[in-house]
Every structure is written in C-alpha cells, then in structure tokens.
Simulated assay, not measured.
Amino acid sequence: MNKRVVVGISGGIDSFYTAFLLKERGFDVMCLYINLFDNHEVFLRAKMLSDLLGAKFEFYDAIKEFKKEVIDRSINMTLSGYTPNPCAFCNMKIKFRILEKIRSDSNYDYISTGHYVKIFHNSTTKIFRGFDEKKDQSYFLALVPSIYLKNAIFPLGNFTKKYVKRVMEEKYLFWKDISSSQDLCFVKKGYKKLIQDKCGVKFGKFLYKNRVVANHWGSYLYTLGESRGLGHKEPVKLYVESLNHEKNEVYLNTREFCYKSLIVVADLNFFNKLPNRCLVQIRYQAKPVICDIHFRESKLYANFHEKVFAPTPGQIASFYSLDNRELLGGGIIIGTD
C-alpha cells in the first residue's frame, strides 16, 4: 500500500510542485485547501490544480480561527507597540495544526507543504535550512510546536525556487501568467492601511534631537529601523529609533543609534536543546549573528557578539546552530537593550 500524505495546497506554484513531486514518487496525495479568508479565485485554482494531478481534494474552513489567531492578534500587538509576524503566527496556530489534525483524523502517514526547508525524524524532529539560501523559510517555522511537525516532509528543501519555477512553467504554461503570492495574504492594500482603517488617523509628531521635524498619522503605523516615507527634510538619513504610543510620538535618529546589544525573547519553542552560544536571526533574510544565551524567569536573554540593527519587539528570533544549518527553536522578541 502506498504511503499517504496530506499536502496543504494554497493555489501557488510551491505547494503544487510539492504535491506533484509526491505524486510522482508514488504517494497517495490528498490536497487540503485551508480557507483563511474569502478568495474564490484562489480556491478554484487550488481545486483545479488538485484535479490536474488526479489527487483527492478537501476543504477546511479556518476563517474564524485565522481571524482570531492571526489577524486580531497581529492588530492587537501592533496597537500595544509591537511589530508582529503574521506568517509565523499562521504556521504556529493554524496551518500545521490543521494539517496534522486532518492527517490523524484521516489516518494518513504524513503532512507536507511547499516550504523550502529540510526536516529529519529520528528520536526527535530536526529542522535545517533549505538548499536555496535566498528562499530558505526555516525562520517562519521557529514557533511551530514539534508535535505538529513530527509527521512532516518537505520535498522542496533540496531545490531552488528558480528551478521549481522553471520546471513548472515548462510543463504547465499557465504558471507564466500566475503571479507569486504576497507575504501578507489577508492584506490587499497594505498592513498600514489595515491598521489605519481599524483605528483611524491619530496625528502626531516625528522628533529628532528634541525637535519636531515632521508630522505623522499614528505612531502605531511605524516600526523600528524604518526610514522610508518619514516626510522630514533633514540633511541626513533618519530612521525610527523608538516609539511612544502614549504620547503618539515617533523618535528618529541616525543609523548608528539604532543598533542594540541584547534582545529579550518570550513565548519560547525549541526543537533541540539550546546551547549557551549559538546564532540568532532577528528578521527574515537578516544575517544571523553569534549570541550568548541565558534564561531568567521563563524568558531568554540573547547577548549579541556584534551589535544588530533595529531588533524589533514582536518579531521572531530564530536560533540556529553555529554552522548556520540547524534550526534550534525560536520565540517572540519582547525587549531590547
């Protein structure tokens, strides 16, 4: 009997190629479309792609769960002064939990998605960066509990995005006319516009060296390290150094003042025991840096060996082995120094 796998199919090229590969390798494939928000066009494409493979297609409505665990949580964090990572929350609370649930309920063997990562299962689950350094998505899995990944396989971990795109466009010409999915799937006009529509305009001030240098429409619309669209006319390039949401003020400074030596991390999740020294990555595609780790009152303190530009509360800190290959775990940044 063929091994059976539940593939999370989004209607995009990566999840389709995952299902395609597994089908070619002899797996009995179920394509599961997890409905996060109303998008009939994407749903129909996912159904068409499943039919094209001759795979079983199932639908799971997660709109209410997604709104609570991802959209509302992200908005609430933003209004509390954090810069959230909705994609990581979705992987942690929605996608992999549902895939594992459907696998278990349907008595299938594995789950799979189109993530560019590698995973190995022995006595424990170990996750490694994907072969494609530019596309590696291990950072976004740092918060996912290992119980949801214990039956996961990731075929794309050994490929580059460029290769996947070329192979699929050669075999199925229609992929040339389908654009890549956006980072925030539930936002059409931009995350700032979503927050502004939710909370309205709150006029405030940009300050640099205790001087008002421009006005803004709400401190919650900005994040640490941001430099574009600040509206000032200073002769130097300025960045958001800090925020005061109570006063609705955004403090600007030159780049060198935005570097930090330490982060405080909570909501911890580990795949392997964290050594006293490892690498930490504080945003997607950022350069990992060496840090020393210590714990205090269920929080993790990571002291950088070299200062890091604008680590941002609310973002994910992903920890890696010193050779920068194995993902050891992660958490949410709640403070800096």
Rank of each mutant, 00 (worst) to 15 (best):
A266I: 06
I282N: 11
V280E: 11
F304W: 04
T223V: 14
Q281F: 01
N324W: 00
K247R: 08
H245W: 11
E249L: 10
E234Y: 03
P311C: 04
L300S: 11
H294L: 12
F295D: 09
D267P: 00
A266Q: 13
P288T: 12
R228C: 08
W217T: 13
L268C: 05
A286L: 07
K247F: 03
E246V: 12
L230N: 10
S261D: 15
V240K: 07
E326N: 09
E226Y: 03
V265Y: 00
F257G: 04
V240R: 06
N272Y: 10
R228V: 04
F295C: 06
H245R: 12
L224N: 08
D267H: 02
Q315C: 13
L221R: 02
K237P: 06
V264D: 07
R277N: 11
Y251Q: 12
R277I: 08
G231Y: 06
F309I: 07
P235F: 01
C291H: 02
N253W: 15
E256K: 09
D292S: 14
Y251H: 14
H305E: 10
K299T: 06
E234H: 04
A286C: 09
Y320V: 00
H305G: 03
L238H: 14
A310R: 13
E234L: 07
A302C: 00
L243G: 05
L230H: 06
V250A: 10
S318E: 09
E326H: 09
Y259D: 11
S219A: 14
N244F: 00
L221H: 01
L328E: 12
Y239I: 04
L224K: 09
H232E: 10
L300H: 09
N272K: 14
E226Q: 13
C278I: 00
N324L: 01
F309D: 14
A302D: 01
K233M: 14
T223Q: 15
L243R: 09
S261M: 14
P275V: 02
L279E: 06
S261Q: 15
E297K: 14
V236L: 11
L274A: 13
F309A: 11
L300R: 10
V280G: 11
L279A: 07
